[in-house]
Design a protein around this nucleic acid. Structure first.
Length: 500
RNA sequence: GCCGCGUUCGUCUAGGGGUCUAGGACGCCGCCCUUUCACGGCGGUAGCACGGGUUCGAAUCCCGUACGCGGUACCA
């Protein structure tokens, strides 16, 4: 336990919370909780052009859904601009940064001029800065003039030449960069907003963040941050760069790729599709981390107890959707039927039944009957992976089948079938209320097939097709019981007519 | 191109010099259970990227190659 530990999750509100972002948040959360420290939420809204209105709300809701409750925040960088400007000025005053007046066109011109096969992306760096228009190259007078004109400028970090920046990454071990490979990063943009680099360093310091746990895409900019801490006279936090979540086809799991491969990418989608919260968390935790033994199903508490950065892997992890489903099945089956039924009912209220424009009175009544819905859950629980699938797999519970599985019909409905169905129909039609039970229904069927001297399937198969439209499904007698006598009789009559 | 990071079954991973003829999980395949389908049980398939070292001994340490990924913006 180290109560001094403070970590932050710092998403930028440029879109909905990404599933990879949730994992980063989770690892931060687990680390903080493991050490009894604080988990801080900070919104990095320094890019006004890419700001998305609903993003922040979504982050908050998604984090809450995931159960990752921040101890502090959300803090907003947009409301702290004076701080950044102040430190940027300090850096300039101390000679670690400078004003640059180059327009984007001028920079682009420089790039075009220097671009070559060997150097496809020329940088604004110690090699080129003396050829640009900045406070290092411009004369006193010219500078004065620009200032008076109110010309736009940015503040750039003056990266030193020939130095090596080294730091210890908690996931990767020692990492080092040559400053010659770094560019003179813009710290303060022309609109007065800081870039991520300045803002995150200032905030992490002022918010007393002890450990920066973030995605590997930040590894390359870490040396710039280390430099900034040094120039600002601050102790840098411990860094930990997490491996990326990859798409099955390779590469970072981007929105486009994920969607192409049928993987929901926004946490909101998981909420909407009613994935089990614990399943998503458990799955994400194990995507890049392991408790060190063979356990796979872990509670948040267990994960918290076991979590250390040392057990986080170094290589990217491919998002295995099937494994997520396995976790989802596991957690879903642990829940009570009644509870799942409640959720299912809410789902129906929200989006109706699959394939139906609107609900009929009967559908309305059935889907609002918690006992009936719990029955649907009970019969289908071992056969579906996600909550909405109860509706898809159990649509026949609400209405007599319209479509009949052709193969099942062909296989099960023979010449001699109708008389047996009629026989069964007549027998069960005599069952009153409470007698219309699975065991009784099975007994009667057994009697008939035995009397006829045929196998169970001879009657069961056509019966199932007639009632559900499919060749397979949950226990037939339980299904009949749940459907109720009148409904079953009606369906049998319809089928008899249809296949006559 | 340059810089950085990485590389154990198809996938997620355990493994941190001998106990590894490399363990678990998902997936896949088969068998059992069940006169359906699932669930469950049992079993199987499959991997240390490659090449050099170091060492009595290397999946484990070092170097190189290959491949992958990330970065290379007044985006985060």
């Amino acid at each position: 336990m180290n109560p001094k530990v403070r970590v932050r999750f710092a998403p930028s509100p440029t879109g909905l919370l990404h599933i990879g972002g949730l994992r980063t948040a989770l690892y931060n959360y687990l680390f903080a909780r493991h050490h009894g420290g604080a988990f801080v939420l900070r919104i990095e809204d320094t890019d006004q052009a890419r700001y998305v209105q609903e993003a922040e709300q979504d982050m908050l809701e998604s984090l809450a859904w995931a159960g990752l409750h921040p101890d502090e925040g959300p803090y907003h960088q947009s409301s702290r601009r004076e701080r950044y400007a102040m430190y940027a000025q300090q850096l300039v005053d101390d000679g670690y940064a400078y004003y640059a007046y180059d327009t984007v066109e001028e920079i682009e011109k420089m790039r075009e001029r220097l671009r070559s096969p060997q150097n496809p992306n020329p940088k604004y760096d110690s090699q080129t800065r003396m050829q640009m228009r900045n406070s290092l190259t411009l004369g006193e007078l010219e500078l004065q003039e620009l200032l008076e004109e109110g010309s736009e400028y940015v503040v750039r970090l003056k990266v030193p030449q020939g130095e090596t920046v080294q730091f210890e990454d908690m996931v990767r071990g020692p990492v080092s960069f040559e400053t010659d490979g770094l560019d003179d990063q813009v710290l303060l943009k022309a609109d007065g907003m800081p870039t991520y680099h300045l803002a995150n360093v200032v905030d992490d310091h002022e918010m007393e963040i002890t450990h920066v746990i973030r995605g590997e895409e930040w590894l390359s900019s870490a040396p710039k941050h280390i430099l900034l801490y040094k120039y600002l006279g601050w102790e840098p936090p411990v860094m930990a760069h997490l491996p990326l979540i990859m798409s099955p086809s390779g590469g970072k799991l981007s929105k486009r790729k994920a969607e192409e491969e049928g993987i929901p990418v926004n946490v909101r989608d998981y909420r909407k599709e009613r994935y089990e919260r614990d399943a998503v968390i458990n799955f994400l935790a194990l995507l890049g981390w392991s408790p060190g033994d063979d356990r796979e199903l872990l509670t948040l508490e267990e994960m918290t107890r076991e979590f250390t950065l040392g057990r986080v892997g170094k290589s990217g992890a491919i998002f295995d959707f099937k494994k997520l489903l396995w976790f989802n099945e596991n957690y879903m089956r642990q829940r009570a039927d009644a509870e799942l039924a409640e959720e299912l009912m809410a789902l129906v209220r929200e989006r109706g039944l699959p394939g139906k424009e609107s609900l009929t009175e009967k559908e309305e009544k059935l889907s609002g009957d918690s006992e009936f819905m719990a029955g649907v859950v009970r019969l289908l629980k071992e056969r579906v992976s996600r909550l909405p699938e109860f509706l898809e797999a159990g649509i026949f519970f609400f209405d007599a089948p319209v479509q009949f599985d052709e193969k099942a019909v062909k296989k099960g409905w023979k010449e001699d079938t109708p008389p047996r169905i009629i026989q069964y129909r007549d027998r069960i039609s005599g069952l009153e209320g409470a007698d219309f039970r699975a065991d009784e229904l099975k007994r009667i069927l057994t009697e008939i097939v035995e009397a006829e001297g045929v196998g169970f399937g001879k009657l069961m198969m056509p019966l199932r097709v007639a009632v559900t439209g499919a060749g397979s499904g949950p226990d037939l007698f339980e299904t009949l019981e749940l459907l109720g006598r009148d409904e079953v009789l009606g369906r049998l009559d319809r089928a008899l007519q249809k296949f006559a």
